[in-house]
Write a protein that binds this DNA or RNA. Structure first.
Length: 892
DNA sequence: CACTCCCGCCAATTA
DNA sequence: TAATTGGCGGGAGTG
């Protein structure tokens, strides 16, 4: 159609034609053949494209490049075909016949054919819905405009809306990068959350529109000032910090789009009438609701609606009310936004080429995490780009008047964020109370993270950010590495531990902050502590900025660094850095996402950044955050040791993040990632038997730490980004136990004695045999029994050992070899593979099913320990679940 | 006539 | 200053 138009109508077309068609149609030249040509023209073009269209889509999935190229050409075809297809053709023919000459031309271009919706479809057709992570698709506005045969202005309309949903992001002038729908669910989720804050009340009431409106206004006044103030944090700015002003009024379209979507997401009926939406939007923006404004708003809404319709998120409907029928749109997109990993996983596999690289990391995150991860990923990608990418405007200026505004907003936002957070937590089912409590209990500075999060502006991130997980530090503990839990607390250090660690290969790793210890055994363990959103959030913050968080956050994470290494080792030194940045970016991005005010600018806090990590390249990223782990990587085992030594306690934890480099690690090694700290922990642990790829490695994950961290490589190779410790079984042999005091330490510093006590225990464990992996959380200890479990059989649930009391754990570390699991905390142990004793789980034992475990954070025995993060955790958990499931499956 | 929403002027922002 | 973005609203196409 376009072609038609072009030939006839559009002057521009000529150019477009050629370019547009690209190679294929020559025949179709723009000429206007009065007669049949029309049709012919159409035909030819379409044909070439159409046929392929479907294929190409598929292909696109397969090969990006191809798809891009082809899609461009074809894409619109399909659309056209679908919509217009028959009609136009037939018409055309007729027309042709009738009015051989000019007339048809006029008709062709019917307005509909030029609609923004159609244009958007064409636009979308050019890009894969779920581009591989590896490929980065950039969109040139000029190019697209010419290809689609429209003025740039129109492209802006589309892109702005897509940008609001994060399907694309502005990279530079005239350049946008295509993200596809990977993040869509995340974005929608955020919008929904944000929407609930802003409009929740409104919609809740079933809406009568008026009611809604009414409420809306009311609400607006009361609670959400921000929207008016500065609704637009949206994107970039917030994070960027300065935020430059919101540029222009601009963003209006973007913001409007987000708000519009929010209305749908919040609405129970999922139907929003234009006029209501317009009113709401107007009000937010302005108080005056003059008619002209209304009209303008409606116009814009149509624009947005057209794009959303093209995206398949809404459809037009009519609602008849008393007074008649009103145009409205119904949301037909996803309503629930679990984090989805979706395709990512599938895609990811391909991506990993880079072992240690960022990318890899990113991927993992993605994998592990849900949508968030995706973001992360993007972020990483974007990393190259400035955060601002989103907005050109971002001015760096630190403080500008705008800023002030922002600050104000920030405060508001913060509040909102807090609210959101709470909400989220609650929603998640976590117990918010717990969280807090936990915090308190935890006190340890670092750990407390969760708390801080709340208050901190960063929170907003929380709400906003989906990605948090992206960041966790991962450490690989390779062979040699040992980290002593010592760090955990100064107190904590345990002689034994260190010794142990070293002893053998050093495999056993302790992570200072981390709660868990892993031993390699044949089977794999995964422990998940609190994975949570919170964690995530925390993590994010770190990256971001947020000083506040930093402290708390340390926990947060360093950008994950190592990620993927699973298969490879990560090692790339450079990677870490990158990761970090990306993380930051992510944050930004995330923030940006938030439409409303959610995003909060970071506050100035000081965050001590982690020191740069020593040698490990990867580590760099990590350090930031804080992880305190030590990794002992082969490379720098020493370092690891050192750190451990340090008093981790609160302070240190922050800093510590050290990673080690993966490089050195032998492939099989374990990675340890840790998170640390900060957080609340979650009691959940997963034990995974080694999958094929894993062989002897065991993984432990602490939920808390790395939310998204755990991800399994596509191949099954598990890659851990999580704060986990993996120990090669071999290494473990001698050491059964690992203790990480750190974690707990923060909360409850473990008495030295306790720890030591534990140590002994461990030894005893030795009997277990190498196979048996033992994890000890400061809080909890788990002993998985590996199939071969030696005499000590963990299986019995009832083991006395199991009971190590949480107390111990908390206080210090409890360790038990015998019992399959010991938990200080309400940790849940999951065994995926082994059936062994079901009962293994300590208190919280949930049913063997992983899912169950994950899902129910609540089960945690100690609320205190685990705090609030749960909300986050939940998310994390979910991600974890996935992974676990995956992993489990693989092993199975 | 009401609904849609295309079109493109022109200002704000950037480069 | 030129170019890029994008707000905005007139007014045309549709039903």
């Amino acid at each position: 159609e376009n072609i038609f138009d072009r030939s006839r109508m559009a002057p521009k077309t000529p150019i477009k034609n050629e370019p547009i068609d690209l190679s294929k149609q020559k025949g179709c030249t723009p000429e206007r053949n009065p007669i049949t040509p029309v049709k012919i023209i159409d035909r030819p073009q379409p044909d070439p494209w159409t046929p392929t269209a479907n294929l190409k889509i598929l292909v696109s999935a397969a090969s990006p490049d191809m798809r891009d190229r082809e899609k461009k050409k074809e894409l619109f075809r399909p659309i056209e075909n679908s919509e217009q297809s028959d009609t136009p053709d037939s018409l055309q023919y007729d027309i042709v016949d009738d009015s051989t000459v000019d007339e048809f031309e006029k008709q062709r271009p019917s307005r509909k054919q030029k609609s923004l919706g159609l244009l958007c479809q064409k636009f979308l057709a050019r890009y894969p819905n779920y581009p591989l992570s590896t490929e980065k698709t950039t969109i040139s506005l000029d190019e697209v405009a010419s290809i689609l045969g429209v003025e740039r202005r129109r492209i802006y309309d589309i892109v702005n809306v897509l940008e609001s949903l994060h399907l694309v992001s502005r990279v530079a002038k005239n350049q946008y990068s295509w993200h596809g729908r990977h993040n869509l669910s995340q974005t929608l989720k955020l919008l929904q959350e944000a929407g609930e804050l802003q409009y929740g009340e409104l919609m809740t009431s079933q809406h009568k529109e008026q009611d809604l409106e009414y409420k809306f206004e009311k609400r607006k006044k009361e609670t959400i000032p921000d929207s008016q103030n500065r609704p637009l944090l949206d994107f970039s700015e917030s994070d960027c910090s300065s935020a430059s002003a919101n540029s222009r009024k601009d963003k209006s379209l973007r913001i409007m789009s987000q708000k519009f979507v929010m209305l749908f997401l919040v609405s129970k009926t999922k139907i929003v009438t234009l006029d209501i939406a317009a009113k709401i939007l107007i009000e937010e923006t302005q108080d005056t609701v003059d008619h002209s404004k209304f009209k303008t708003k409606v116009r814009r809404l149509y624009d947005i609606a057209n794009v959303l319709t093209s995206l398949g998120l809404i459809k037009k409907v009519h609602v008849t009310e008393e007074r008649g029928r009103k145009p409205a749109f119904k949301w037909i997109g996803p309503v629930e936004f679990p984090e989805k990993t979706d395709e990512l996983n599938g895609h990811s596999p391909t991506s990993d080429p880079l072992p240690g690289t960022q990318r890899g990391a990113c991927v993992q995150y993605q994998t592990s995490a849900t949508g968030k991860q995706r973001f992360t990923r993007h972020a990483s990608f974007n990393s190259a780009q400035p955060c601002e990418a989103n907005r050109r405007k971002v001015s760096s200026e630190p403080n500008s008047p705008h800023q002030e505004k922002q600050d104000e907003n920030c405060s508001k936002m913060i509040n909102l964020a807090a609210v959101c957070r709470q909400k989220i937590e609650e929603d998640t089912g976590n117990k918010a109370g717990d969280t807090e409590t936990i915090l308190n209990s935890t006190k340890n500075s670092n750990i407390t993270l969760p708390l801080s999060l709340l208050p901190v502006p960063g929170d907003s991130d929380f709400c906003v950010n989906p990605l948090p997980q992206a960041v966790f530090p991962v450490v690989q503990a390779d062979v040699p590495s040992f980290s002593l839990p010592v760090g955990i607390s100064s107190q904590a250090s345990h002689p034994s531990t260190p010794a142990a660690s070293k002893t053998e290969n050093g495999k056993p790793t302790l992570v200072p902050n981390q709660p868990f210890l892993c031993f390699p055994s044949s089977s794999l363990f995964m422990l998940c502590g609190g994975l949570q959103e919170n964690n995530l959030s925390k993590l994010l913050p770190t990256a971001g900025n947020l000083g506040n968080r930093s402290a708390e956050a340390q926990a947060a994470v360093p950008p994950a660094t190592c990620q993927k290494r699973s298969s490879h080792k990560c090692s790339s030194p450079s990677a870490p850095v990158d990761d970090e940045e990306p993380a930051a970016k992510k944050q930004m991005l995330e923030r940006s996402f938030l439409p409303l005010s959610l995003t909060v600018p970071k506050q100035p806090s000081e965050s001590p950044k982690a020191e740069s990590s020593p040698g490990s390249g990867c580590s760099a990223a990590v350090h930031l955050e804080m992880d305190h782990f030590d990794l002992a990587s082969p490379v720098a085992p020493e370092a690891a040791n050192k750190e451990p030594v340090k008093p981790l306690d609160c302070q240190e934890q922050k800093k510590q993040s050290q990673n080690k480099d993966p490089d050195e690690l032998p492939p099989g090694n374990e990675h340890i990632s840790r998170e640390n700290a900060n957080q609340p922990f979650q009691p959940q642990y997963l034990y995974v038997q080694p999958a094929a790829g894993l062989n002897s490695f065991n993984f432990l994950f602490s939920a808390n730490q790395a939310p998204g961290a755990i991800s399994l490589a596509a191949n099954q190779m598990p890659s851990l980004s999580v704060p986990c410790v993996m120990v090669p079984s071999a290494a473990l042999a001698s050491f059964p136990l690992v203790c990480s005091p750190s974690f707990t330490s923060p909360l409850a510093p473990v008495p030295d004695g306790s720890f030591s006590a534990a140590a002994p225990t461990n030894f005893s464990v030795s009997s277990l045999a190498s196979t048996t992996p033992v994890f000890i959380n400061t809080t909890a200890v788990v002993t998985p029994k590996v199939s071969p479990a030696p005499s000590v059989e963990p299986q019995q649930p009832p083991h006395p050992a199991l009971h190590l009391s949480p107390v111990l754990t908390r206080s210090g570390n409890a360790v038990k070899l015998d019992s399959p699991v010991c938990m200080g905390h309400p940790v849940t142990l999951l065994k995926l593979q082994q059936p062994s004793s079901a009962p293994l789980t300590p208190k919280s034992i949930r049913p063997a099913h992983h899912e169950a475990f994950f899902k129910t954070p609540g089960s945690l025995g100690d609320p205190v320990a685990w705090k609030k993060h749960e909300g986050n955790q939940t998310r994390n958990a979910s991600s974890v679940q996935r992974r676990l499931e995956i992993s489990s499956t693989s092993p199975d």
